[in-house]
């Protein structure tokens, strides 16, 4: 893997940014004027976690395509690890989303497009996990997992789009057409949290890939010792 930045450096960077981001979010950015008030602060972590989850699945998608082209197992390990981290972040998205939902709409769970899409993504990538566990032969496992990772990543935005056919959702549109836009202080706090969260994701993937490669070496050594 690229050795530009070491994994510990990534972790430190992510930690510093996330702490600064939290401080900014609580003391610099104003209290939300709408009905949410103080509990809107969870937005500064909720949305970056969601972005990190999507980015991790994106990494898995790219790794899958590169694996299919090169048949190099390093890319399989990267894809596998990225899915795992993406899954972890998705679960956090749903937990923070439920907290948000409770504060904003008074219910823990709403069948709301983004939350529903993340729920389905969780099941999709859980299926990826199951698929890996039922193929014994390593190369075949990597190939099937890669094919499924490609299909899954293509499916997620389509699912999100399809949920628009369902009766109206509740999610606030913050950025984008019709969105309220962000004040400078909000945008800055948010950007710091976002970059911090992406760094954290990269650091976790980085570390886990290294662990996987060490595991592979151990397996190789065991095989060579065992004859």
């Amino acid at each position: 893997m690229k050795k530009l930045v070491s994994a510990p450096a990534l972790f430190v960077g992510a930690g510093v940014l996330l702490v600064i981001g939290a401080l900014l979010a609580f003391w610099y950015a104003p209290i939300d004027a709408s009905s949410m008030g103080f509990s809107q602060k969870i937005f500064y972590y909720h949305a970056p976690i969601a972005a990190a989850a999507i980015a991790a699945f994106g990494v898995a998608f790219v790794a899958a395509i590169v694996y299919l082209r090169t048949q190099d197992l390093l890319w399989d390990r990267l894809g596998y690890v990225s899915v795992r981290i993406g899954l972890l972040f998705s679960i956090l998205v749903m937990i923070t989303g439920m907290i948000w939902g409770k504060a904003a709409w008074g219910v823990w769970w709403a069948w709301e497009p983004r939350l529903t899409t993340f729920l389905l993504a969780c099941f999709l990538y859980a299926a990826y996990w199951v698929l890996r566990s039922v193929v014994d032969e390593e190369q075949r496992r990597a190939t099937y997992a890669a094919v499924f990772a490609v299909v899954a990543f293509v499916d997620v935005p389509i699912t999100f789009f399809a949920t628009r056919f369902l009766p109206e959702g509740l999610h606030p549109v913050v950025v984008g057409p019709g969105g309220g836009g962000m004040e400078g202080s909000v945008a800055l706090s948010f950007a710091v949290c976002l970059v911090g969260m992406l760094l954290l994701m990269a650091a976790l993937i980085r570390r886990d890939v290294e662990i996987e490669l060490i595991k592979d070496r151990v397996t190789d050594l065991k095989t060579s010792l065992g004859g």
Partner: peptide, 21 residues
Amino acid sequence: TRSRDLLLPILFLPLIVPVLI
């Protein structure tokens, strides 16, 4: 795969949701 017909619904159902909707 080892689990064959057990695996298919787990792979297929979450992906087919958009069509279902």
